[in-house]
């Protein structure tokens, strides 16, 4: 697929989402307020009631900064979540149209998912501008121009990984009547094991070691640590490399599922 076609699809998809402006602003406002309130209340209570100054390697402003950043970067990464996009195409027969296109279906869908990210990206930048000054400075985390520059490719790769992870549950729609539950299941697993709900440094040591062998850490925790300046250049290169390797593995796993499903597919609604 040529780059101009790819960006044309990105543009179309993001304009479609931005056209629902009321939805766009309501979702953003409520999300920001609720997340800030819960985050602040929860961690303030934990630090006050435990009497500790450092929890899991974080001070209170540091863990609040983690919470805000994982929420903001996570929104962009989760933009790669296909939700019900592919399964709906399979059930409605809309897949037939894509099969006629001279480009692979997954690449077309990826371009559309990147388009989906644009409103989230815009919202995340706006929310960050509001939230970061509110939360104050930390001794355990610092956002610098370099860390911001490093986080951009990190988020792009994490987004691709999430997209590839959500392909297989969607392809199951070739066999199953409803895969909504699988999509939600993936979200639960990635949120907990990827560090979106809690920094992984709060888990017991052995569990942490195990979690770092899984791909989920590259979805949420790794980009957040990068933006908070907790990852040096060498660790960053290794992290990006490992994440790309996971993309290859998971992408390769999805190929036979697609091929078998494609053979099984019968187009309806043409």
């Amino acid at each position: 697929m040529s780059l101009s076609l790819f960006f044309h699809l990105v543009n179309l998809e993001s304009r479609k989402l931005m056209s629902y402006r009321v939805d766009f602003w309501i979702t953003m406002l409520v999300n920001l307020v609720v997340n800030l309130v819960v985050l602040w209340a929860l961690w303030t209570a934990i630090f006050a009631e435990s009497g500790a100054e450092i929890v899991g390697g974080w001070d209170l402003p540091g863990i609040l900064a983690y919470g805000v950043m994982v929420f903001l970067t996570g929104r962009i990464v989760r933009g790669g979540d296909l939700q019900m996009t592919i399964s709906t195409d399979i059930y409605d027969g809309a897949l037939s149209r894509y099969l006629l296109y001279p480009r692979h279906y997954a690449i077309t869908k990826y371009a559309q998912q990147v388009g989906n990210v644009m409103p989230d990206l815009f919202q995340s930048v706006l929310m960050g501008l509001v939230a970061i000054p509110v939360l104050g400075l930390s001794t355990t985390a610092t956002v610098t121009p370099l860390s911001v520059a490093m986080v951009i490719p990190t988020i792009l790769v994490a987004h691709l990984l999430f997209f590839l992870m959500s392909l297989i549950p969607q392809y199951i729609a070739f066999w199953a009547d409803n895969v909504w539950s699988l999509s939600v299941l993936l979200r639960f697993v990635t949120m907990l094991l990827g560090g979106a709900m809690l920094p992984l440094s709060l888990f017991p040591d052995r569990v942490q070691e195990f979690l770092h062998w899984l791909p989920f850490v590259y979805l949420f925790e790794f980009p957040t640590l990068v933006v908070l300046g907790k990852v040096d250049f060498t660790q960053w290169c290794i992290g990006i490399g490992t994440c790309l390797l996971w993309c290859l593995v998971i992408g390769a796993l999805s190929v036979p599922v697609w091929r078998r499903g494609d053979l099984r597919y019968t187009g309806v609604g043409i």
Binding site: F24, I26, T27, V30, V34, V37, A45
Partner: peptide, 19 residues
């Protein structure tokens, strides 16, 4: 947007009230 806002707001009920 409203439905998403509701599901987001339900997070408030999933934590102890005194926090």
């Amino acid at each position: 947007g409203l439905v998403m806002a509701f599901f987001s707001a339900t997070k408030l009920m999933e934590r102890p009230d005194r926090i």
